[in-house]
Amino acid sequence: MNQMLIRPLQAGDIPAVAAMLRELAREFIVHESTLEGASTFLAENNAQGIRGFLASGHVYHVALIEGELAGFVAIRGCNHLFHLFVGKRWQRRGVGRALWVTARAAAQGSGGDGSFTVNASNFAVPVYGALGFVRTGPTACVKGLYFNPMRLARRD
């Protein structure tokens, strides 16, 4: 794989991040949701929504390969993995793990204790399992969106 650069999200990245999120969410997340749930999720996670998440303190990093957005990650409150998306072209090539390692270190450097939660789509459960997360409950549905609560325990 070509050289990967992971850096904090910049304002100019937001349109590409929002487009990637919309494309991947349609294929891997909201196809299982109610129409209302899908519509709500996509509306809350558009470019304006991402700007709002940034304003409320979410920390985003992007992965670039050959200058192209390969994926992105967001952490809320130093302990919740909020977004982790990798473009289809770059999946299964270590981009997601590299983003996670960067985001996790940044969260811990900002006062996080190393424990994290995530609400995983059905598709993403094995991905998060490979990162060390375990289920903490059955599949849930909130606002028409299905997810699996998972947790990564702090490693001492």
Results as ranks from 00 to 15, higher is better:
12 G>A: 13
51 R>L: 12
124 A>V: 02
8 P>H: 10
111 G>C: 04
25 A>R: 07
129 G>R: 13
133 F>I: 02
12 G>R: 13
155 R>T: 14
148 N>S: 15
156 D>S: 10
93 R>M: 07
42 L>S: 03
74 A>W: 02
34 T>I: 02
143 K>V: 12
151 R>A: 09
107 A>L: 01
14 I>G: 07
25 A>T: 12
104 R>W: 06
66 E>L: 07
27 E>D: 10
43 A>V: 05
24 L>G: 09
122 N>Q: 14
136 T>Q: 15
17 V>M: 09
109 G>Y: 10
80 H>V: 00
121 S>D: 01
27 E>V: 10
27 E>C: 14
147 F>P: 03
119 N>I: 01
47 A>K: 04
14 I>R: 10
152 L>H: 10
113 D>Y: 03
133 F>E: 04
143 K>L: 11
116 F>C: 02
68 E>P: 00
69 L>Y: 05
110 S>W: 08
133 F>A: 02
68 E>F: 02
124 A>D: 02
50 I>E: 04
29 I>Y: 08
145 L>M: 15
148 N>R: 15
9 L>A: 14
46 N>K: 02
48 Q>P: 03
41 F>W: 08
138 P>G: 12
152 L>K: 14
97 R>E: 06
108 Q>M: 11
114 G>S: 04
74 A>V: 03
74 A>G: 04
45 N>Y: 03
3 Q>G: 12
75 I>M: 06
144 G>M: 15
64 L>I: 08
154 R>E: 14
109 G>D: 07
54 L>D: 03
31 H>E: 14
120 A>N: 05
86 V>P: 00
140 A>G: 14
92 R>E: 06
26 R>P: 01
93 R>H: 15
75 I>D: 00
47 A>H: 04
19 A>C: 09
109 G>K: 07
23 E>F: 11
27 E>K: 11
47 A>T: 02
69 L>D: 01
127 V>F: 09
64 L>A: 10
123 F>N: 08
40 T>P: 01
51 R>E: 09
40 T>C: 11
143 K>Y: 13
11 A>D: 12
10 Q>N: 15
36 E>P: 03
7 R>P: 07
29 I>T: 05
61 H>C: 04
21 L>F: 12
64 L>K: 05
